[in-house]
Amino acid sequence: MSEQPSVPDIKEPATSAAGDSIPVVPLKHPVRLALAIVLILVALSAAWDVAVNERYRWDIVVSYLFAPQILAGAGLTLLLTVVSMTVGIALGTLLAIMRLSDNPILSTISRGYIWFFRGTPLLVQLIFWYNIAALYPVIAFGLPFEGPSVVLGSANVLISPLGAALLGLSLNEAAYMAEIIRGGIGSVDKGQYDAARALGMSGGKLMNRVILPQAMRVVLPPTGNQVISMLKGTSLVSVLAISDLLYSAQIIYANNYQTIPLLIVASLWYLLMTTVLSFFQNKLERRYGRGFDSAPRRIRKPKTRTA
């Protein structure tokens, strides 16, 4: 510890020597305080109004909050999000590495993929995959240009509405994740490649052990955004008649006409899920921020400072 260089501590006031203390009077912020009080009053009155306004029908909200149909919808929404994000991140990483490749064919293919899937609406892509059987009634594995092939089955059977939804969401997400991950990889200092190579690393090991863990720090915050917008974006799949959270709520209020209470039910579940996901995002960010940010320390302002 003795070798720790003394950081020039400019915040320390120049006090006379020998440990005497000087009382510090903190600066007052009257305008800030007044504004805070006003905002608290506004927030409280709004909350009060929401609580007592009978037309919100909180009794209906509560009765449907744990309805089996809603729970199943929330589960499906979560499933769609987790699977699409996982596939999207894996494929996106591959696309990002291809995009950064020295080989012009690989990087052009990656660029083309990103161009296409970011440039067309997700809704169109979802409907396209849903109707893929119209273009390709039979799905088969085989050699190109009419070569021999193995028939896997009818497209209508293989690509169910859920399959179409997962395909559409994953492939679309991969394009966005590719750009995010490319940015993360680009943010890693070139000296890190030199150092890793000089230690005998190459290829996958260099990427996995040195570059990607550092890219994570830059990749995580926008990825958190993507997860949250994916969670809510999955509501688009209701066009494929998949009973996700929103679609389940819609089915119920189509019958009982309690539109607002059921939308509140759905929103509460969306809020809960995004909150939980944000919590994990925070943990991950802290995990991958190690060694970059100084450890988060809470410094209490002391009333007096000793020199």
């Binding site: 200092d189 000296g191 890190q192 030199d194 150092a195 890793a196 190579r197 000089a198 230690l199 005998g200 690393m201 190459s202 040195v210 863990p213 550092q214 720090r217 991958y288 190690r290 060694g291 970059f292």
Partner: peptide, 20 residues
């Protein structure tokens, strides 16, 4: 090439330690 680099250790101007 990576194998052959193991004969030599290298120290850089900007240290290039792995920060994570």
């Amino acid at each position: 090439t990576a194998r052959s680099r193991l004969n030599a250790g290298m120290v850089f101007q900007r240290f290039n330690l792995f920060p994570h």
